[in-house]
Write a protein that binds this DNA or RNA. Sequence first.
DNA 1: TATTGTTATACTCTATAACTATA
DNA 2: TATAGTTATAGAGTATAACAATA
Lengths: 151, 151
Amino acid sequence: MSATTAATSSSTRLASGLRLVVARLARRMRQQQSIGSTDDMTVARYAALAAIERMQPVTLGSLAAAEHVQPPSMTRIIDRLEAMGLATRTIDTNDRRVVRIGITPEGGRVLAEVRTTGDAFLAKRIARLNAEERALLARALPLLERIVADR
Amino acid sequence: MSATTAATSSSTRLASGLRLVVARLARRMRQQQSIGSTDDMTVARYAALAAIERMQPVTLGSLAAAEHVQPPSMTRIIDRLEAMGLATRTIDTNDRRVVRIGITPEGGRVLAEVRTTGDAFLAKRIARLNAEERALLARALPLLERIVADR
DNA sequence: TATTGTTATACTCTATAACTATA
DNA sequence: TATAGTTATAGAGTATAACAATA
């Protein structure tokens, strides 16, 4: 078996297992509903808010592209984050079609709180692993990030 | 810092990273829509079909419990799998309230095909990792399964 | 005309509540 | 009465299509 064939075979097996576990994890996370202490903070909104903090001041379009959702979907997410007082819309002075999205101090506070408080479900389950297993998971996380990354 | 505190701190950091990457992975997987060559084979249906193969002949109720969805949701999933010719409903002869779910030969074939063909998105991305990284991912997968497991 | 974002609308997935059939 | 599953209905999330405002 060539190296390429072996890589393909182990990749498909891994993909199969990963798909199942990710689907279940995502479903469980969604069922936890509001993450952190803030009500209405869903996974999608948390992910968008984290992206805003990282990319601000960012246009709605590039935020949608970064999060792989369509612009109308991001409009909805921002509507809610804005209503919650966590994000801001500002019309670009150079090009008045463009909306710049920013994070409010409250948004930053909520983000930090969610990060430290963590998701009860995930953090509790992870805490049950031993130190070695957590270290392994910490090393695997960047790999997952590369798998989901663009390009 | 006590061992417990260290475990908690690393767990919350890990949970935070894991949540973001799982949310993105799940969204990308959902966008791929039909996995494998079969149309309408969504992630939820694939997960249910895999569970049926593992547990058959299984009642609708225990299947719902195993997949952490409510019975009405599982009813819908089975409706579709049955219409696709991949799963069967059989009324239990001992207790006519109970429905036993089974997998058809076609269902088994589709499952095997999805497993070997794999999800184009995931398998292709995983194939880009080197052998060492794939080995690491393979070791991390059971940890994720334990995190999402019951109890 | 082309581009950015929003509004209108629809679909999928899942939930809760009410119901039917059976025990 | 209690239980297994289904039907009715609703809500969240996201998509496509059509539109408005601006370049």
